[in-house]
């Protein structure tokens, strides 16, 4: 699993999607695959009972298990539900984009994700770093920040700070983030008496959390856990590699190919049958509507 990238990539996505997507929805979408499962992955104890953690990789990414939460279809399902209930297009889009970004990022560990579930239960993986949840939270953190995973997180921090730094400015917050989601930001402003400075701090919070977490856990890995630094592809080699889709890669390739084709057809059919109708009766934030009308007026002139 990725540790900080899920928080960081939201700002990069935001820069490219702009007013069409709610940033808060994108952030929530990025949490969505792990929201109800992460606690069980490492396991926790209530009294003398230990819950979860017996086969974390199978539970987190496999089937049978909760691996379906790391599929494209799960994101489509949740965002369609949000579109049907709240009619907000930019919340549905934000949730979907955040969710898909998460599951695509997670293909980089050795467990991979069932992107095309239920049409294929083969996990897709690049195998860049080893999924180390079997070591518990601290062991996983130490292994991750001693592997290419830590480099991957740092890469995303640099990408955001260099290529998406304008998304961190007050001006951007004022002109894009709030107009894309005026109701929620206005509610936070009213409910908690937060002026713009507080709201901006809240908006920058995810980047802050992701960025700081990289350093805190890296220091832990280097100075407390003393894990070996192994940034070779598929490292660290001291963690046992678990493959959820054993067998030749050609089997997984054909499984994924057929699964992706079936999923694509299924999504097109769903779009034609009901998602398009839900989308058409949904609404955009006023700023986006005004922008679209402005473009249409300019084109007409």
């Amino acid at each position: 699993m990725s540790w900080a990238t899920h928080e960081l990539e939201n700002y990069f996505i935001q820069k490219h999607v702009g007013l069409r997507m709610s940033f808060l929805a994108c952030a929530l979408g990025a949490f969505l695959p792990d929201l109800f499962t992460k606690g069980f992955v490492y396991g926790f104890t209530i009294g003398s009972y230990k819950i979860g953690g017996s086969d974390p990789i199978q539970f987190h990414r496999g089937w049978p298990g909760a691996g379906f939460t790391h599929s494209i279809l799960w994101g489509v399902l949740v965002s369609t539900l949000v579109l049907a209930i709240f009619r907000s297009r930019n919340w549905a889009l934000g949730l979907l984009i955040g969710h898909v970004a998460h599951v695509v990022t997670d293909i980089n560990d050795t467990a991979g994700t069932m992107l095309f579930f239920p049409f294929s239960t083969d996990t897709i993986t690049t195998g860049m770093w080893r999924h180390a949840a079997v070591l518990g939270r601290y062991g996983d953190a130490a292994a991750y920040y001693s592997s290419p995973g830590g480099v991957w997180d740092m890469f995303w921090l640099v990408v955001v700070l260099v290529f998406a730094r304008q998304t961190l400015t007050k001006e951007y917050f004022r002109t894009v983030i709030v107009p894309a989601d005026p109701r929620v930001w206005a509610w936070i402003h009213r409910k908690f008496h937060l002026p713009e400075r507080g709201l901006v701090a809240l908006y920058r919070g995810l980047l802050f959390y992701g960025g700081c977490r990289i350093f805190a856990w890296t220091f832990y890995a280097r100075f407390q856990a003393h894990t070996r630094w192994d940034v070779s592809w598929g490292g660290p080699d001291y963690v046992e590699r678990v493959d959820l889709t054993p067998g030749p890669w050609t089997d997984a390739f054909w499984g994924a190919l057929i699964g992706s084709a079936c999923l694509a057809v299924f999504l097109v059919v769903c779009w034609k049958l009901f998602i398009q109708r839900l989308w058409n009766r949904g609404y955009d934030p006023p700023a986006l509507t005004a922008k679209k009308q402005g473009i249409e007026t300019t084109a007409a002139n």
């Binding site: 601290y138 937060l194 400075r197 507080g198 701090a201 809240l202 919070g205 995810l206 802050f208 805190a216």
Partner: peptide, 25 residues
């Protein structure tokens, strides 16, 4: 703080709210 109190500080609630606390509250 995260280095010392990992479980309490390095989580999805405290982390994103921390700048709000230090920069505004």
């Amino acid at each position: 703080l995260g280095y010392v109190f990992k479980t309490i500080v390095l989580n999805w609630i405290v982390g994103p709210l921390f700048p709000l606390l230090v920069v505004y509250l």
